[in-house]
């Protein structure tokens, strides 16, 4: 008898595809939240596989803070063209202009938490009832407790104490009018799984994930890239370093790491020996011990 075993990556892939199809079957207006980062690139690939040979039945939605690395935006547009998918972009800057959000003060005002306003407005405007996201449970301890089908109230808020139990592969996506879901097909993936999958599938990723020379400033241990949105504090200066990014978020809050890894194989080696989590480079999570939970309760991704 042949052995009916699947590798861990194959099991994760089959699970994620099942979840995406459940979303298409249970909801009327789903969308895939796309940031241009590695997790959302994996999500797009899985969506293609889940509905092949049809196109995946939802648009990509990018909540643009305006603080992106230009490489990420170029990559996004190329991916959209190649996959012939529909892209919808909404800008945090527009929310600020409309007076719905207020720019932070300080030397590196982050628009990270302002994204919530734009995101919730976008969901309302376009009447999305389920937003697929690439968040993983290994990223952060509040995420470790979030359901794969995460019910949000009409304000997009997450209530960690009142989550629906999630058993077997039975996902309960029932909701009242105005409520919506965030769905996380990569919940059980780790950073390593994502990299291994990118390597297995030979997926293209933005160049900033690979080692390159860049001017950075060391702020509280986070190596922030030089950008128009960062003001140097007294005593700070930009230095040329060989770096890469482990996550891709806003330039104002995503730090780089010193690295010479210039191929996927080298990145996998580096991730395997890393002694810091990838979110260790995120200034947005360093704001407090429960920063992620607090943002999610307000409607964050």
């Amino acid at each position: 008898m042949s052995s009916y075993n699947l590798t861990h990556l194959a099991q994760l892939e089959h699970e994620a595809i099942f979840i995406m199809r459940e979303v298409a079957a249970q909801f009327e207006r789903p969308a895939l939240l796309f940031s241009g980062g590695k997790d959302s690139i994996v999500m797009v690939k899985l969506a293609q596989k889940a509905f092949w040979p049809a196109k995946f039945p939802f648009p990509l939605v990018h909540i643009d803070t305006g603080h992106n690395f230009p490489e990420t935006i170029a990559f996004r547009d190329q991916l959209v063209a190649e996959t012939k998918s529909r892209l919808i972009v909404r800008y945090v800057a527009d929310s600020i202009k409309a007076g719905r959000a207020v720019e932070e003060k300080g030397p590196n005002p982050s628009r990270n938490s302002l994204q919530t306003v734009t995101l919730v407005d976008t969901i309302e405007e376009l009447k999305y009832d389920a937003c697929l996201g690439g968040a993983r449970r290994d990223e952060e301890k509040a995420r470790a407790k979030e359901r794969i089908f995460s019910a949000r109230d009409e304000f997009g808020q997450w209530d960690p104490k009142n989550q629906r139990p999630e058993l077997w592969n039975l996902f309960n996506g029932r909701k009242h009018v105005g409520e919506n879901f965030r769905v996380f097909p990569l919940s059980n993936w780790t950073e390593m799984d994502v990299w291994q999958y990118i390597a297995r599938e030979q997926l293209a990723i933005p160049s900033i994930y690979f080692s390159h020379d860049r001017e950075v400033v060391n702020r509280n241990g986070v190596l922030l890239a030089k950008s128009p949105w960062i003001t140097l504090l007294p005593g700070e200066k930009y230095e040329q370093k060989r770096v890469r990014f482990r996550t891709v978020g806003d330039a104002t809050c995503t730090g780089s790491v010193l690295s010479t890894a210039s191929t996927l194989a080298e990145i996998i080696q580096e991730v395997a020996s890393a002694r810091q989590t990838e979110r260790g480079t995120r200034a947005d999570d360093k704001r407090s011990d429960t920063a992620m939970e607090d943002r999610k309760k307000k409607g964050y991704f």
Partner: peptide, 20 residues
């Protein structure tokens, strides 16, 4: 594993936590 604010305040585990 006890990452939620209420868990840390009360020293209890509220929910299933997944670890990898």
């Amino acid at each position: 594993t006890d990452g939620l604010r209420a868990e840390r305040e009360q020293g209890i585990t509220i929910d299933v936590a997944y670890r990898y």
